[in-house]
Nucleic acid binder design. Structure first.
Lengths: 127, 127
DNA sequence: CTATCTGTTATATTATAAGTATAACAGATA
DNA sequence: TATCTGTTATACTTATAATATAACAGATAG
């Protein structure tokens, strides 16, 4: 799984890294049971600090994307990722609404917007 | 237009405020030509600093949601909000993708996800 | 047993963002 | 002229992001 960070972006690199790992799981580039690189080697590979990677692994663990074992390192949750619950759904709505409101202001109608969402979905699934 | 801020949220209040004004435009609670309260009165009403409101107005002006005149204050863009351009579209994709990837990891299939998006859209349009 | 790998914790430092506080400036208008 | 507008400047506090060293504890390969 290729990690590409944009150090000029306004999105903090820990968030970029987290998102890319999650997208790697979504595209099945990494699957339940697979191991992720150690915090030190990944940090070294992509040229960032080990604490930044450690923070990301901590967040992914908190969201149950991965399990962390004291010698094997970080493992994609072997039971698979837990289903979307109410907490996730309300967090999703909280982040989705502003994007949709902005799109509506800028003249995107429902059909166009839906088509764009479908496209994003297919892009990820097809990778 | 009612503004409600959550000071405990992890979303900064300037972003909450910006989003709520944009949603107000999307729902047509405020329309092109309408004026927004002055930075001082709005700040005072919702109990925040005038610079925070000023920052939001500056961002909204930058995105061409509003125009700012030296005496009338902030006015919803009388020409309407500019159509979605490539810059907007790529920013939208950048923010949309991680949300969709997360949803896919958590077992939401395309149809379910599309239905949720449709729901969000209708919720906003119906307000 | 020991060297080496894991994640983990602690502490410190730097830089930037978020939010507030006062104050003053300049243009428009009643 | 007094009062409203946005604007600018300066300063301060707090939180977040990111880095840097260092050390600790468990597991394992040699």
């Amino acid at each position: 799984m290729l990690i590409e960070l944009d150090f000029e972006s306004d999105i903090p690199i820990y968030k970029q890294l987290k998102n890319q790992i999650i997208e790697g799981i979504a595209t099945k580039q990494v699957q339940p049971g697979d191991t992720l690189p150690s915090v030190r080697s990944l940090a070294s590979d992509i040229g960032i600090n080990l604490h930044t990677v450690n923070k990301v692994y901590g967040l992914l663990k908190q969201d149950e994307y991965i399990q962390i074992h004291r010698q094997k390192g970080a493992v994609i949750n072997p039971q698979g990722i837990p289903e979307a619950d109410d907490t996730f759904r309300s967090k999703l709505e909280q982040e989705m609404r502003p994007l949709i409101a902005e799109s509506m202001c800028r003249g995107l109608d429902k059909h166009t917007l839906m088509q764009m969402c479908r496209q994003y979905f297919d892009d990820i699934q097809g990778e």
